[in-house]
């Protein structure tokens, strides 16, 4: 199976809630969502973001928009108020996750009309 970035399957957005970050991933197709559900587990995302030092990662589903939402608890090194990082609010985390290389084989996502 070819290796592709997750961005071939999904788009997304991330932000902060205090010292926690949320990373939402939205599949372009039903087929892609089925793949995400099976493969993009909380454990996989926790391992990928391990250098951020999150205390735990929780996954929620929003099947109505083909979405998975990950909560990365205590991942922002203090959050907007006291983190010394440039990205105090986790704005770039979704883009980072979408760079994850995955094994995926499917019809390519359809561009928007």
């Amino acid at each position: 199976m070819p290796n592709v970035p997750l961005s071939e399957i999904a788009h997304g957005r991330s932000g902060d809630k205090g010292n926690h970050a949320n990373v939402a991933v939205v599949a372009y197709t039903d087929e892609g969502f089925a793949w995400l559900r099976k493969h993009l587990t909380a454990e996989v995302v926790a391992a990928y973001f391990a250098p951020l030092g999150a205390t735990r990662v929780e996954r929620f589903e929003a099947a109505n928009v083909r979405g998975l939402n990950f909560m990365l608890y205590d991942a922002l090194a203090g959050g907007a108020s006291r983190s010394l990082r440039t990205d105090t609010q986790g704005k770039t985390l979704a883009l980072a996750l979408l760079r994850m290389v995955v094994e995926w084989e499917a019809t390519p996502p359809q561009p928007l009309p």
Binding site: H11, G12, R13, G15, D16, K17, H20, N22, A24, V26, F60, E61, A62, V65, R66, G67, N69, M71, L112
Partner: peptide, 16 residues
């Protein structure tokens, strides 16, 4: 569009 609205629907949300 569906993408812009879906991304914002889940923005800064914990359990949707």
């Amino acid at each position: 569009n569906i993408e812009t609205v879906a991304e914002q629907l889940l923005y800064e949300v914990a359990d949707p």
